[in-house]
Computed example of a mutant assay.
Amino acid sequence: MQAESGFDVGGRLRQLRLARGLSQRELAKRAGVTNSTISLIEQNSVSPSVSSLKKILDALPVSISAFFAGDEPSAPKAFYRAEELTEIGDGRLSFRLVAARRPERGMSIIHERYPPGADTGEEMLEHEGEEGGVVVAGEIEITVNGESEVLRAGDAYYFDSRLPHRFRNLGEAECVIVSANTPPGFSDGGQELHHV
């Protein structure tokens, strides 16, 4: 995550962990990950998957939006250049969040890129809110509540995020989606990348 976005994931995680008086061991225990996972992330030796980062932030608890916003939210503005979008993907899946540092953001808008074979994971995702999007390029298989559909450029989706769901690129080309979700939160009220 750091290389693409210029964001110091490891440093930010360490700062938040220490501010809460937690050892790496205690945070790992709360998050259900290994001690070495926390250590390697804090050293920026590995880039955590979005699902791993979500588990760790849930254990703090800190929202993904607050994590990437840091301590200095930016003043509201109307326009964002491509380089101003915050990368919150895992290095394989690219999720670029619009207005990540905007205070009191009421929704998440995400520019998503799924390379061929990319998958949000075998474990179906469920969280509070609603989400929708439009496929801009390529194709994606989306499963919602046991029903699967392959969507192509121009096709769209919209569903209750509490229903179990999964995204998979079974095609041979990259899939690009522009999506939105509201509220922009983890199921416990923080900010979340909509499918993780």
Rank of each mutant, 00 (worst) to 15 (best):
S179E: 05
S187Y: 12
F67H: 05
E149K: 14
A59M: 02
R168M: 03
R166Q: 13
S65E: 13
R162P: 04
S51N: 12
R162F: 03
Q191W: 11
T182D: 02
K29D: 13
D160F: 01
F67Q: 00
R20Y: 06
E112L: 09
V46N: 05
G91F: 00
S65C: 00
E84R: 03
R101T: 13
A100F: 04
G133K: 06
S74D: 14
A31E: 03
F68A: 07
V46Q: 03
I41Q: 05
G10T: 04
P184N: 07
N44W: 00
R96P: 02
A75N: 11
K55G: 00
Y80G: 04
M1K: 05
M107E: 05
K77R: 15
I177F: 10
I38D: 03
M107F: 15
G132M: 06
T37Y: 11
C175D: 00
A28G: 08
F167K: 01
P184T: 02
G132T: 06
R30A: 12
R20L: 04
V178T: 11
L193T: 10
Q15C: 00
G185I: 05
E149P: 06
E141K: 13
V9F: 10
F79Y: 15
R14A: 12
K54L: 13
S36T: 15
G185E: 11
N169E: 08
S52L: 01
G32A: 10
Q15E: 15
D8P: 04
D71P: 04
Q2V: 10
